[in-house]
Design a protein around this nucleic acid. Sequence first.
DNA 1: ATGAAATTGAGACTCAGTCTCAGTCTCAAC
DNA 2: GTTGAGACTGAGACTGAGTCTCAATTTCAT
Lengths: 153, 153
Amino acid sequence: MGDEVQIFEDYLKKHSLHLTGPRETVLRSIFGTHEHFTADDLIAHLQRAGTPVSKATVYRTLSLLSECSLLIEHDFGQGKMYYEHASELQHHGHLYCSDCGRISEFYDPRLNAMQEKLARQEGFEPVSFAVKIYGRCADCSAKQARRDTGAIS
Amino acid sequence: MGDEVQIFEDYLKKHSLHLTGPRETVLRSIFGTHEHFTADDLIAHLQRAGTPVSKATVYRTLSLLSECSLLIEHDFGQGKMYYEHASELQHHGHLYCSDCGRISEFYDPRLNAMQEKLARQEGFEPVSFAVKIYGRCADCSAKQARRDTGAIS
DNA sequence: ATGAAATTGAGACTCAGTCTCAGTCTCAAC
DNA sequence: GTTGAGACTGAGACTGAGTCTCAATTTCAT
């Protein structure tokens, strides 16, 4: 962290854009904490932190950060985008629990290799992959099981 | 086709719901043609066909059809849902061309097997999978190549 | 220090999808 | 075949994520 500031600054300079106060505030907030977050989460967080940034600027900055590959956008069909740090990780898949909405991750290099191969077989030139598995997480499965056995009326 | 009508009717009956005119109109329109479509496509199509059905009813019917697994919902991050006949196919992945927006498909049973295994390793009980690969389709790749070589200014 | 160009925030706007509600339809029971 | 409880419908108001506009402000190369 600090690394991201550098990358972002380089990207901005290369495109004749400016590293402004609001942009830096957003950047620091994102890479200071959050893992999966929405634009709204971020706006609220900035508000609470006493460093509010307008909705328009937050969205604009999120776009820039996606463009320079510091962030990855994810869509879980909730009608809003989720963002995630692109840094560390290789391409991983997401497990989305339909009960509690929690998002967890998994990774296996073979999965990516297989996807790439399948895409190219179709003459398709892949840029990114998104694997989403919807179902029930371990916790919610356990809760459900308890409810099932407990509710012998 | 006709099969779907039966399945839908059974589902409705089981839930004390009615197979009404509008619902049947929507059902027949969907399973008469379309492969990947949005709610808006469908509303416009019904309008043009001289059998308009209100937005609210279309959305309600799409929900029902998804619930009884006649349709599958897909989200490509365009801020709107795409629907697809669930019938025939096993779980397949989607190739989404970022240039022209065309959606094509691919299938490999090993991909599903691998996903299921990985999910269960995390204690996750999978219900459905969504594999989306974003990139450039064969046509758009060719077009781009032509543009690149042609534009030696 | 200066000014062209980039940026900002406030709020209007878009657009997919949901909700409301009064009037209408369905169908099982008579 | 009537009836009525409850399901359904359409019109349009509403929601909420995200985009756009524009006048005022900030940035930074010169």
